[in-house]
Design a protein around this nucleic acid. Structure first.
Lengths: 361, 361
DNA sequence: ACAAAATATGTAAACGTTTTCTTATCTGAT
DNA sequence: ATCAGATAAGAAAACGTTTACATATTTTGT
């Protein structure tokens, strides 16, 4: 008889349960809980306590469906164990906490296929916006995404052929140029470069910086001093090998990324070469280990956390604008890299490290 | 007249649009797209092409609501820039890709409040399960969560007072014990320990290992040789300071974590002490920099990626079981740490590093 | 050749919210 | 006293899927 009083099996409690217990309609319950619309204090209190008593948990999928919004953003990065990306992710996570977004994370490992499914998933999931470090491939897919006015901000890299899109970047050519100019300034003339992927805008920009620095100094560039075409460690190892076995090897090495730098640094030592005595060394992107090695390594540092943080700030702004129907034109935010001089570079003639302001302890 | 032919303003295309265009009912369209239930090949093809033509994207929130499942898991870790956790996260992400789960990420920074909101969000979002590195606080909340039969697997740490829950762990006391036993074995008698948070099971277990090792060797432990009570870097710095200014300072230092180890390693050098000449050094948890420093540092290494990977494997298994209604009893999977000997420890009497199998190059 | 089983499709009822209408009551201001 | 507006609460219609049920057609085993 009172069978329907005992809750039937596994059904979880919904807002109608709390409405019932509080003795109000579901509409009122909804208003009381969300705080939107009118609800008397007495009722508010009653339904709140009912919710608490019943251990009510809002069903977000239902809400998301109804309000056509998820308060969720998607984050697509290439690799979470690379400190560059984990710091970047840290920036967006912190900002997400502040702004009340949840974040759905996808990693691509630089694989266009994984990128494609990640993007598809996020789109299906109806995230409010996407922050992505693109692989550089899948151009038509990305273009399609922006055409469907998905809120999107690219970070770290752009996509060639997909122009009208927000992006927060660092000035890679300036950073690379600064590093090479510095090496030239202390006397180096044969500077080997371990290049990153030429299908990414960062990879390209960094070699551009290499060129620019040489041009400014009226120096020629020897093509065989530029090796490698991927951010992959193996590619870095091969590139270093190629540089070191040149008839006339370089006197300094510039690695295009922290990963490339790490394998190069290890490989150089494994060959028994002294840094900076035999070979000067510098790399793009700082990394936790760079300050701990002996010698510590000079780097061009990027504002990694900020990259992520302001990406979400920008994305949030776009989301708000879209809600209010006044979309603004896409913009590019470009941040400044910083040359951090430590102990891994020496003037060409001398054999002991030079002293730089703030370098070495 | 044919006004209704032009799609009205911003409405996004739904499955009824594709059903209409394919000339079938929505039910058939759903079946054709999902592959569940009957649908002739001809129809399948027709609705697939209709979907493609219209750029149809399934609305996941709607589906999630209907099927009461999200294919999403929640991952709560303390900090994404710590390599230990980023590798762990990497493991679950890889597994998620294989198994078709999306992952919603939350970081706590060891803050119980952040942990509480992260958990609340995940519960509301109706994730199929949760993998968490708990702060150790919020015990009642966690207990509540497991009571509401949320699928949960703890990783790295357990929660005191919340016993009946799956967990994948590493044998922390064994790892710490191995490290200390090794130090004792090469002659050290005063071994300083920089302790982690005693409110975590790992922090506790590692001091337990310290005790065990001393006990096995019939050695007393001096309380002032154990300093610190947090995984926070500042705590580590203070602890090291305390150890080094002891009337009779230790001859070796054991740091309870990679973070603690990093600050200790830097601080020791900053004080001008030679490792391992003046002081032997070892830490719990390997880290990318540990192999790159001079000297490279010996560690007790944990299977970080596996930790994450098998956590999700286990969680997935639990999710399947729950679906089939045959829930199994919670289990603990404990993995073995590994002592990796490098160059940072020397026998007490001698002054040059001993040679170990596989250590040093 | 016929019943039974398999295949194919459509109808309509959920899933748990939010929100737009109503309708009713309560405030002051005139 | 009356009216306009604010406040309070309910009824019901979405949001976009999936799926149980019903029905019709085809295949299969005997």
């Amino acid at each position: 008889m009172n069978q329907n009083k005992t809750r039937r099996s596994k059904k979880s409690i919904t807002i109608v349960d709390v409405a019932e217990r509080a003795g109000v309609s579901v509409a009122t319950a909804s208003r009381a809980l969300s705080g939107r619309g009118y609800a008397s204090d007495a009722v508010k209190e009653r339904v709140r306590r009912a919710a608490r008593d019943l251990h009510y948990r809002m069903n977000a999928p239902a809400r998301n469906l109804k309000v056509q919004r998820t308060n969720t953003i998607g984050l697509i990065i290439t690799n979470i164990i690379n400190p560059f990306y984990s710091h970047l992710a840290n920036g967006v996570l912190d900002c997400a906490n502040e702004l009340g977004y949840r974040v759905l994370l996808g990693v691509t490992n630089e694989d266009p296929d994984l990128e494609r499914v990640s993007l598809k998933v996020l789109l299906e999931q109806r995230v409010d916006g996407i922050i992505a470090v693109p692989t550089g491939q899948n151009q038509t897919l990305w273009r399609e995404a922006v055409d469907m006015h998905t809120r999107l901000v690219l970070v770290d890299r752009e996509i060639q052929g997909v122009p009208q899109v927000d992006a927060v970047l660092v000035d890679n050519v300036k950073g690379a140029c600064a590093a090479i100019t510095y090496l030239i300034g202390i006397g180096h003339r044969r500077i080997g470069m371990i290049c990153g992927s030429s299908s990414t805008t960062t990879g390209k920009a960094r070699v551009q910086g290499y060129y620019d620095a040489h041009q400014s100094a009226n120096l020629p560039v020897a093509p065989d001093l530029m090796q490698g075409d991927s951010y992959n460690p193996d590619s870095g190892r091969r590139a270093l090998e190629a540089l070191l076995t040149l008839p006339e090897p370089p006197t300094a090495i510039f690695a295009s990324s922290n990963i490339l730098g790490e394998v190069a640094f290890s490989a150089i030592r494994a060959r028994g070469l002294q840094i900076p005595g035999d070979l000067s060394f510098i790399m793009f992107d700082d990394s936790p280990w760079a300050a701990l090695t002996t010698p510590s390594v000079s780097v061009v540092s990027q504002p990694t956390r900020s990259l992520g943080y302001v990406s979400l700030k920008l994305l949030d702004q776009r989301i708000q604008e879209a809600r209010q129907g006044n979309a603004q034109a896409p913009m590019k935010i470009v941040m400044e890299p910083e040359l951090i001089l430590r102990e891994s570079c020496a003037p060409l003639s001398g054999s002991r490290p030079v002293e730089f302001a703030g370098a070495g302890r």
